[in-house]
Amino acid sequence: MSIWLLVHPTLAFLAAPLLPGIINRTKAYFAGRDGQPLLQTYFDLAKLFRKGAVYSRTTTWLFRAGPILSLGAALMAVVLMPLGELPTVWSFQGDFILLVYLLAVGRFFTVMAALDTGSSFEGMGASREMQFSMLAEPVLLVGLAALARGTGCLTLSDIAANISWQAWSQYGEGLILIVVALMAVFLVENARIPIDDPNTHLELTMIHEVMVLDHGGPDLAYILYGSALKLWTLSVLLVNIMIPIHTDLLLLNVVVSLLGVLCWAVVVGVIESTMARLALIRIPQFLVGAGALSVLALILIKK
């Protein structure tokens, strides 16, 4: 049993940078390009770790602490998140609230580091990031609360273990609403296309990208790795709901869930390739709509 505890964190730490690679390859396929190698994020990380960092004299310790603290929050979020039936190292009543606030802490320090540079562009990005995440946070919290209400469990691993095909037949309509709302949160949190374009380099339209412009070397590597881990955590959350596989064979469950995560990355690539970016002023409306869906799910799901 004890060896199973370490399976998901190890897998996540090793395989998380693969997800951006899969998404980029899918987008490249849709655009008719060859695209970058699947392992490009690993190469980037290796390159950045070999380099030194340059710090502006106007910045303080906050700027240096930001990337490390946000990576720390992302690492803890991975440890909290169960993959299907795999037990987590650390689990307690109400740990899904901690998950939401770990994501918030990571974001807070990224924003602090951005504001610390004193650059007006980074300030703009920070303000946008906070505005949208302020709307996205209740969606995630209410969505998870609806899941907790449906399954009658208060820990993430119990919730994941109790979502089954039977749950889908009992309150499937609520689960569909939760999945759609959490997809919106996923796209906001990971700066994906209908909300933010991870590839854009036009300062006026950037949100997340603009906040990390002044980081370089190992700091940028921490940020890249942290965002890959965040992508992995939220993907696993969605896959746990969408593919509730509970066979007797634990290994089979793990393999199916992993394949689900990889397929989900392809789906995200398809969403990014087929949708246009929303105008900035339309994003709050999009998020409020997602919030309405998760509140509706909370109302509809009853145990």
């Binding site: 409306q285 409020v288 709509g289 509706l296």
Partner: peptide, 16 residues
Amino acid sequence: YAQSIVVGMVVLALSL
């Protein structure tokens, strides 16, 4: 429109 959705949710709670 965003405010309309919020009003809609309040109205939904009220009707429940």
